[in-house]
Simulated scan of single mutants.
Amino acid sequence: MLQETTVNQLQYLLKTLRDGQKGFADAAAHATDPALADLLRRRSGQRAEFEEAVRQRIIDLGAQPFEHSTLGAALHRAWLNVRDAVAGRGDYALVSECQRGEDIAVQKYTDVLSEMDMPADLRAFIQHQFAAVKASQQELADLKQKLKAQQ
C-alpha cells in the first residue's frame, strides 16, 4: 500500500511538472522582454529536469509514469490562447499567469509533503524540488510587482 501511495504522489507531481514545463515554454515564446523570455525558458528547463527525475523515481518503483498533462492545465493554456487571439499578452500578464501557475505548483507540493507515511529519502527529494518551486514563486511575485510599478 505504501508503494502505491508513493507512486500516486509522484504521478501527481509529474503532471504538475509537465504542466509547468509547457506553461513556462509557452510564456517564454510570447514574452517581449528578452531577459524575461530567458528566465521563463530556464524555468521550463528546470521543470523538464524535475519531471525527468520524478519519472525515474516512478520507474524505479516499478510503475509506468503518466504521459499526459492535467485537463485543467490544458484548459488553462487553451484559455490563454483564446485571450491572446483577442488581445495582445503583455509581459505583466505573462508573469501574472506564471505566478498563478507557481501558486498551484506550491499547493500541490504542499499536498504531497503533508503525507505522513512518505519514505525519508523521497521526502528529501521532493523537498529539494519544492524549495526551488517556492523560490521561483517568490521571484515571479517580485517581478510582477516591479512590472506593475512600471506600468
Rank of each mutant, 00 (worst) to 15 (best):
K144Y: 05
K144N: 03
E49S: 10
S136K: 05
N8A: 11
G23F: 06
I104G: 04
L113R: 00
G90S: 11
D84M: 07
E97S: 10
A78H: 11
Q138A: 11
L80Y: 09
M116I: 00
V7L: 02
K134V: 06
F125S: 05
W79F: 14
K15A: 14
E139T: 13
A73P: 05
G90W: 07
M116D: 02
D91S: 06
F50S: 04
G20Y: 04
R55A: 08
L147W: 06
D142W: 04
R47Q: 12
F50T: 04
H68I: 08
R18M: 15
D19T: 09
S69C: 09
L80R: 11
E115P: 00
K146G: 02
N81S: 10
A135P: 01
L61K: 07
K148I: 05
D111A: 00
F130K: 02
L13A: 01
E67Q: 14
L36W: 11
L75T: 05
Y92V: 08
P119V: 00
E115R: 02
D60I: 15
A85E: 05
E52M: 09
D121W: 03
P119S: 02
V95C: 00
A53N: 08
E67R: 13
A53Q: 08
L143C: 06
A120P: 14
I59R: 13
Y109W: 04
K148M: 06
A35Y: 14
Q46C: 05
